[in-house]
Amino acid sequence: MRCAQTTTLRLLATVLRPTEGTAVVAGHDIVRDPALVRSKIGFLSGDMGLYGRLTPREILTFFGRLGGMRPAALKSRVAELIEMLGMQSYADTRADKLSTGMRQRAAIGRTIVHDPPVLILDEPSYGLDVPTARLIENFILEARNQGKCIVFSTHVMEEAEYLCDRIVVVHEGKVRATGTMDELRAATGKTRLREIFLDLLGFADLRKEATA
C-alpha cells in the first residue's frame, strides 16, 4: 500500500474491500453493490494505466464495452472524445509510442468514456510536467462544471486550493480537518493551503519565528 489516501480511493473504487465499515458512492453501497458502484465511477491514477500495445481508440472502446455501452453509441462516443481531447493525429498509434501528454489525454478519455457521474482521481498529476498537469486541471474543472462529483488526492497544495470545493487534510492516516477553503482559513488564521496544512500538522511558522 502506498498511503492512506490511495487505500481510501481504492476502497471507494471497489478495487479493495474494506475490512470494516462501508461507504456510499452515487447512492450505492461499496460493500453490497460494488458492481453498481463501478458502473458509476471513472478511476484515474498518476500511472495512467494504459495498455501499451493498444491504441487510444482501442483502449477507449475496450473500457466502453466493459461499461456495457452499445456498439453504435460507443463508436460515436469514442470519436467525440478523440476530437474533444485533440487526439485525432494519434488515436490509432500504439500507446507505448506516445508522449506523456498524449498518454495522459488518452487516460482521461478512458476515465470518462462511459460518462460516469463520479470521478476518483489518485494523484492524477503526479510526476507530470506543468503543461501536462494543466491538462488534468482543465479536465477536472470541466468535469466539475458538468456537475460531476470528483474525489481526488494530491500532494500539490496549490492544485487543491485552486480546484477544490471541499478539502480534507489527511496526515498519517488521520483526518486533520475538513471544510471549504474559507472554513479552513477561519479555523487556522492562515491564507494559503500550504500554511494551513503545516499549521494543522503542528509545524511552527518559520517566517513568523524569524521576524519575532
Binding site: T14, V15, R38, S45, G49, R110, H114
Partner: peptide, 8 residues
Amino acid sequence: EILLSSPA
C-alpha cells in the same frame, strides 16, 4: 487497478 475499477 484500472481494470478492477471498471464495470467488469
